[in-house]
């Protein structure tokens, strides 16, 4: 026993090293599990306000672009509003269920922290649990996909960006209706990849890729990107498709968090069905 204690004492630096590194490794692995409410990340209030200060300085230099984007979005929204008003006036009876009509609720938030050059990029925003944000919700900006909520604190939330090698978004090619998933390869912030499009599909350069709505996080039809390059290897089962992301992540200033009110209903229905089949 004494020898053991002596041994440990003699190599105490090494054992401390081992313990600390194991703790770090555990944190890294734990953090890779998806979605949680954690406080040791940039949704932490102190961290977020410090990042916010840095971001607001940055933003000053891109005010013109942000203004233009907001004005354009305003115009688009006004068009949509007018159209739906006309529809209501004409008495279009196609949609009656008000729950479905109000299926999605939008929470507007400001970006306080953003990165684009790491392999796992995250975005910090200034809306949190108290504003109704919770893990698993989708984030869009100007009707283009941005990412989904990973963790929230009371006043802030961290989004897992589309520019994250762990993030996959279920998407369809709008023209052909084939679905696959968009996953970033960690290289260039302007491009991403569309995976799992089967051989028999005929994707073409210039096709739009939009969210599929299959996983109930993103609503259907949110623009992800435009196909930039297609490739089919001799023995591959799927196409290699490179898409140009619609969202410019370098200029991101505001996002809308989408709260899907029917998500729970849908997921529980799917769970029950899967349970029955088994």
């Amino acid at each position: 026993m004494e020898r053991l204690i002596n041994f440990i004492y003699e190599y105490r630096a090494f054992f401390t090293f081992l313990v600390l590194e194991l703790a770090c490794a555990w944190l890294i692995i734990e953090n890779n599990q998806f979605q949680s409410t954690k406080y040791f990340n940039s949704s932490n209030r102190v961290a977020a306000s410090i990042l916010g200060f840095s971001q607001s300085t940055r933003e000053y230099f891109s005010l013109r672009t942000i203004n233009e984007d907001l004005a354009r979005e305003n115009a688009e929204l006004r068009t949509l509003l007018e159209r739906s008003r006309q529809k209501a006036l004409l008495g279009d009876a196609a949609v009656i269920d008000s729950a479905r009509l109000n299926q999605y609720e939008f929470i507007s938030a400001k970006v306080v922290g953003n990165s684009t050059s790491l392999y796992k990029n995250f975005i910090t925003i200034n809306k949190g649990m108290l504003d109704g944000v919770s893990p698993g919700m989708a984030a869009i900006s100007n009707q283009k996909a941005v990412g989904k909520v990973k963790s929230v604190s009371d006043h802030y939330a961290v989004l897992i960006s589309l520019l994250n090698v762990d993030e996959q978004v279920s998407s369809v090619i709008k023209r052909t209706n084939h679905f696959g998933s968009v996953r970033w390869d960690g290289l260039d912030m302007r491009y991403s990849n569309l995976q799992f499009i089967p051989r028999h599909a005929v994707p073409a350069v210039g096709d739009s890729v939009v969210t599929s709505g299959y996983n109930a996080i993103f609503p259907e039809g949110i623009l992800v990107g435009v196909i930039q390059e297609v490739n089919l290897n001799e023995e591959a089962m799927f196409w290699d498709i490179r898409i140009e992301l619609a969202q410019d992540f370098g200029e991101l200033a505001f996002v809308d968090i989408i709260k899907s009110k029917l998500k729970n209903e849908r997921e529980s229905l799917e769970q029950i069905t899967i349970g029955e089949v088994k």
């Binding site: 944190l27 040791f40 790491l118």
Partner: peptide
């Protein structure tokens, strides 16, 4: 890590 959202 807190600021880089890269726990550990």
């Amino acid at each position: 890590d807190i600021f880089y959202d890269s726990m550990g």
